[in-house]
Amino acid sequence: MKSISLYEEKGSVLNKIAPESKILYIVAALVIPYLIGSRWVSLGFIIASILLLLSAKVIRKTVPILGVSGFVLITVLLIQGLFRAGNVTPILSLGPVVFYKEGVNFALGIVINVLNILLSFCVLILTTKPSDMIENFVRKGFSPRFGYVFISIFQIIPQMTETMATITDAQRSRGMETEGNLFIRVKAFIPLISPVVMSSLINTKERALALEVRGFNSTIQKTFLNDEKKIPADKWIQLGMVVAIVAAIVFRIVLVVMYFM
């Protein structure tokens, strides 16, 4: 079954940790380096994320994610290193092409921040079943309807894509041209859009009926088949993250106060 979820069950500790702990980790990884204002803290979080992903045996799944953003990051490094306003100190010359320290330094800051964001999010999305995450939220008062919409997207979008492919094949078998220049492709889009929209509407109505007859809009307190995803250490992990964030805020306030004194 195709799903757009990147989650993979590997039976690791990270798979068993509460999603809230991982979300707090993301918050910490993004907020603390900003508050402390040090690139080394970001680097520390990058290393921590890599170690966590290695322990969860999902590091290979980060390669395509980093590959896509890597191209953008290299472009940033090149442009800033070569052309950033205020570039004065050359660090590398390749004939007429000169890289400057200031530009490279600025670009490295961006690269580290982006890698930190990507890897910390990978810790969550590669090791957390979306349904577990939403179920935990619903248990804490999140709307089950929004929860359903969020979870079902992961399976229903691939199904809709398959429907689209089937309709495309059907129209192609009736002589519709789908390959060629832009005009041909735009022309092909018109006979596709009507059956796709109609079938989507019909499917949505039928699914809404099917949900309704299974008590989807019930106001009764929901129960759950699966136990809440958490381990005993979760409260300590969450406490640790909150303490670290609060400490970083205090550090920042002290820094600001000292600056004005």
Binding site: K129, S131, Y148, I151, S152, Q155, I156, Q159, N203, E206, R207, L209, A210, L211, V213, R214
Partner: peptide, 15 residues
Amino acid sequence: IVFQNPFNQVTGSKL
């Protein structure tokens, strides 16, 4: 009640 199309009766939220 069970409907015609089995595919559209799958909630899509369970694995």
